[in-house]
Design a protein around this nucleic acid. Structure first.
Lengths: 199, 199
DNA sequence: GTAAATAATTTAACAGTGTTAAGCAAAAGT
DNA sequence: ACTTTTGCTTAACACTGTTAAATTATTTAC
């Protein structure tokens, strides 16, 4: 019965094909154009087939968002490894966060945008191996001489995130007016908050 | 022909009824529940009637957004009038912005949220009598001894807005976890940027 | 190898969406 | 009184997510 594994492999393939197709549609035509029948078209099945793999459309969305969280965490982790100085690590991590938002703007909108059911902060801050955890670990390390409470670290992370997420949101809606202005604002903001960690 | 005015008055009434109905539905059931037929139900007409007043659903949305901009500008202007000191004016204005976002959260989502077609920054910053203009006027006044360029003022306004909009976005999605933490972050952020105006 | 059972996939349908065209009844103009 | 315009509705189209039934293909049992 080695065919069982072959069948399972095909099923897995279909599952990822569905997710890939969904992302492809969104990248080409935007979130509002995503429909079950369009996904079905691409994977060369009919729409009801998708329900063998996902409970409903929302389940596809949350799965895509989860893929996004994984990818983001990976990139942030990678950015950390490029620096040794803690403050530089933090800067690199936030910059990679920034880059992710624009490289994978559709995913970012899904993960943190207003509209779909996905939350953002709670999930991202508490889950181990998330970018939130990775970044706040560095914040803790930088502040360690001040013996910060977990609540304070959380607040600092929150402050960072607010301004960066705000900047990103604004840039995502009026797509990229004045790139270097943003980069300057971003750098200023990161530097400002980082200074407040040790002062 | 005094009836012409009566008819016009009825038409205007219908128009505002449509907008009111739309906002009512959104407040009760959220944006995704808004439909032309539901609006028609409330105003006791059939759906196609709405197209006599608005080109399409999107036109209703942008009109609502414009109402939002007007209301926001009014509130910000009012906040300014409660203080005489420039820096306090600025703080009060941003606080009223913050309050608006939560008092009229549906409108705020429409005006600045990701998803619908409305942009935010350009429109708000350039239009006279908008909250953006009002706030950046105060920024200019505070910075006047430094002879700031328009570009610098714009960037400062942008910085304020980013962090405040970021904070709001995050609070709108995970609705209000820890109110006073946010207020503290907000106050810190505003103070920090304000200090950077005169330093 | 053929028949029964099971799995895989599709067709048809439901209730909803935005939107447009055709039809009808009442009012207005001549 | 007849025609034209206006206000409004019904019917329809092309979509949407989703479910149930029907069909086809594949596996299992004998």
């Amino acid at each position: 019965m080695g065919s069982k594994e072959r069948i399972q492999r095909l099923k897995d393939e279909n599952r990822t094909n569905i997710l890939d197709a969904a992302l492809q549609i969104v990248k080409e035509e935007g979130w509002q154009a995503l429909s079950m029948r369009k996904i079905a078209d691409i994977i060369e099945y009919t729409a009801p087939m998708i329900y063998e793999y996902f409970a409903n459309k929302d389940a596809i969305l949350t799965e895509l968002a989860n893929q996004g969280y994984l990818l983001l965490a990976k990139k942030v982790k990678q950015a950390k490894s490029t620096e040794t100085d803690l403050e530089k690590q933090l800067e690199a991590m936030w910059f990679s966060y920034w880059d992710f938002a624009f490289e994978e703007r559709e995913l970012y909108q899904l993960m943190f945008g207003i509209g779909t059911a996905c939350c953002g902060f709670e999930k991202t801050y508490k889950c181990a191996e998330s970018h939130g955890k990775l970044i706040s670990d560095v914040i803790r390390e930088i502040m360690k001489e001040k013996n910060p409470s977990e609540e304070l670290i959380c607040r600092k992370y929150f402050t960072y995130w607010s301004i960066i997420h705000g900047l990103i949101s604004i840039n995502l809606v009026n797509q990229g007016n004045g790139d270097n202005t943003n980069q300057e604002v971003l750098k200023d903001a990161i530097y400002g908050i980082t200074r407040s960690l040790t002062d």
